[in-house]
Simulated scan of single mutants.
Amino acid sequence: MFWKTYLTYVSAMKKRLQSLLILIISLFYSTSSFASAEGEVDSLIQKLSLEEKVGQLLLVGFRGFGVSEEVETAIRDYHVGSVIYFDYDVVTKSRRRNIRSSHQLRLLSEDLQAISNLPLFISVDEEGGKVSRLKSRYGFSKKPSPAELGHKFQWQVRRSAEKLATELIDHGINVNFAPLADVNTNPYNPVIGSLGRSFSEDPKEVEDYCRSFIEGQNKAGVISVLKHFPGHGSSRGDSHEGLVDVSQTWSEKELIPFQNLIASGDADMIMTAHIYNRNLDIKYPATLSKRTIQGLLRNQLGFEGVIISDDMNMGAISKHYGMREAIALSLNAGVDILLFGNNLVYDKNIAAKAHGIVVDLVKKGTVPLARINESLKRVLLLKKKSGIL
């Protein structure tokens, strides 16, 4: 009996030691791989001009089913590192924007990558449900909304997200502004709850569904973007139209999905919300707030990935701040990529204007060069990690 117990103990210990050894080896190679990628990125950064560095921190929208002069200039002359696709042009109220068919979209992505010196982030809002750019009318699959997925099993969410992301990657789209980590605390919210964009009113369920969605997208090779930090679920207004104050409705439980997904290493990129919350910052909305981005997201929650702004053309920013002021505040607050959807309002020279402003802010010392390099390193490391670079 003694020997049997002893042998069982030795066998169990052997298995534990083997598991520990595998873990140590995997951590070693993971650390070694990261160090190698970091070295390559550092070397690349040293070779880039200020103008090239700034371009990598800009994401712009454009008009055209093909490579127009507008977007070619943005990429070639202003080194823009990221673009976003829409299927509907808000200003002209027409479907003549970027997406017409599967074949057309695939060619567009290939042609855009071909004219860029550094590989592009090609992005889209493909949440499913009412927020879908690759619609069935263009020959793409119909995707369930987050609210619908919130009633499914986790494996079904993973499978749905993988299918969605496979369609994206097959058309050259490598970044999806999904899933939403917004907790459905206000089901009548005009931009979240009422549109079926939240998984659940339970923050833990939101966390679990987000993780499953991310796992599905990761499997297909698409970068997930969690949004909208620090939580847009309680709002009563639409930040597309103007500044939204959530000081009386927001609660700390809205941080739970973000906090836990960061802790588990599932968050590669996070989008900020243009919401104002005097409990977090008495002066600025989240996208422009150093207290919210650097203090809360970076320091308290420990997020080390890429932070991207919500659309800087939205009324919450554009109606209350000048373009130069908003850019300076957001970069100094800790935003890594500035998103100009160029759809709510349209300016064919948006890339040139944003680029010129950032370069001038750096040259005048308003935004330190170190701040630019810091963001640039995060962006390039993510491109490297995801196999884009």
Rank of each mutant, 00 (worst) to 15 (best):
S32G: 08
S33C: 12
A35M: 15
A35N: 15
A37P: 00
A37D: 13
E38F: 07
G39M: 10
G39D: 04
D42V: 12
D42A: 12
S43V: 07
I45V: 10
Q46S: 14
K47Y: 09
L48N: 07
S49I: 14
S49C: 14
S49A: 14
L50D: 09
L50C: 11
E52A: 00
K53W: 04
V54G: 14
L58N: 02
V60D: 13
G61F: 15
F62R: 05
F62V: 01
F62I: 11
R63M: 01
G64Q: 01
G66I: 01
G66R: 09
V67K: 05
S68R: 06
E69F: 00
E70A: 14
V71H: 06
V71D: 05
T73L: 01
T73F: 01
I75G: 04
I75M: 06
D77H: 05
D77A: 11
Y78G: 12
Y78F: 15
H79W: 12
V80A: 11
V80N: 14
S82C: 11
S82K: 06
S82N: 11
V83N: 10
V83D: 03
I84H: 03
Y85I: 02
D87L: 07
Y88E: 06
D89A: 02
V90Y: 11
V90T: 07
K93D: 03
K93E: 11
S94V: 06
R95G: 15
R96Q: 03
R97I: 00
R97H: 04
R97L: 01
N98A: 02
N98L: 01
I99Y: 03
I99E: 00
I99A: 00
I99R: 04
R100Q: 09
S101T: 06
R106E: 08
R106F: 07
R106K: 15
